[in-house]
Measured scan of single mutants.
Amino acid sequence: QGDIVVALYPYDGIHPDDLSFKKGEKMKVLEEHGEWWKAKSLLTKKEGFIPSNYVAKLN
């Protein structure tokens, strides 16, 4: 089961498979690959890669 993270900063995706998000948006982490994680937005239901240093895990 994936962790839920919250965006600390907004992110505008650079690549087509990036997931753009707004500050405060919550996402479910699907896979962790070093600095880039695959996640699904709980708001938009879209999936893509996010920079892990832009988010914090919720406990």
Rank of each mutant, 00 (worst) to 15 (best):
Y11P: 01
F49P: 00
P51M: 05
A39Y: 01
F49E: 03
K45R: 11
D3G: 11
Y9S: 06
P16Y: 07
D3K: 14
K22T: 10
L19F: 04
K45H: 15
A56C: 15
L8D: 02
F49V: 07
L43E: 11
S41I: 04
A56D: 07
G24A: 04
K28A: 10
L58P: 07
Y9N: 05
K38A: 05
D3Y: 15
E25H: 03
F21D: 01
V55R: 00
W36G: 03
N53L: 09
K38R: 13
F21G: 00
K46D: 08
K40C: 12
I4A: 04
N53T: 12
L19H: 00
K46Q: 10
W37C: 10
K38M: 13
V6H: 05
N59C: 15
I50T: 00
L58K: 05
H15A: 10
S20C: 08
G24I: 01
E31Y: 09
K22W: 04
Y54L: 13
K46V: 07
Q1H: 12
L8R: 05
G34A: 06
D12N: 14
E25K: 00
G34S: 06
L42Q: 05
H33F: 12
L19Q: 00
Y9P: 00
K46S: 07
K22C: 11
V5H: 05
E25N: 02
K57P: 12
I4K: 03
L19G: 00
K22P: 03
G2C: 15
N59Y: 11
K45G: 15
G34W: 04
L42F: 07
P51R: 05
K45S: 12
I50G: 01
V5F: 10
Q1D: 12
K40R: 14
Y9H: 09
S52C: 12
H15D: 08
G48M: 00
P51W: 04
E35N: 13
L19K: 01
G34F: 04
L42C: 14
V55P: 02
V55E: 02
Y11W: 14
L42R: 03
A39S: 03
D17V: 06
D12F: 13
Y9I: 08
Y54F: 12
S41A: 04
V5N: 00
A39F: 01
V6I: 14
I50V: 07
V6T: 06
D3M: 15
S52A: 14
K45N: 14
Y9D: 04
L8P: 00
L8V: 07
L58C: 13
V29G: 01
I50R: 00
A39V: 14
I4L: 09
Y54N: 05
S20V: 07
G2K: 09
I4S: 03
A39R: 00
L58G: 06
G13T: 05
P16N: 07
I14V: 14
V5D: 00
D12W: 12
E32I: 15
A56K: 14
P10C: 12
E32N: 13
V55D: 02
G48C: 02
Y54T: 04
E32Y: 14
L19V: 02
E32K: 15
N59E: 14
W36C: 10
S41C: 04
G48Y: 02
L43C: 12
G13H: 03
M27Y: 01
D18C: 13
S52F: 08
Y9W: 12
K38P: 03
V29C: 04
A7R: 00
V55Q: 01
Y54A: 09
L30T: 06
G34T: 05
K23V: 11
A39L: 06
K26S: 07
K28P: 00
S20D: 06
K28L: 15
D18Q: 15
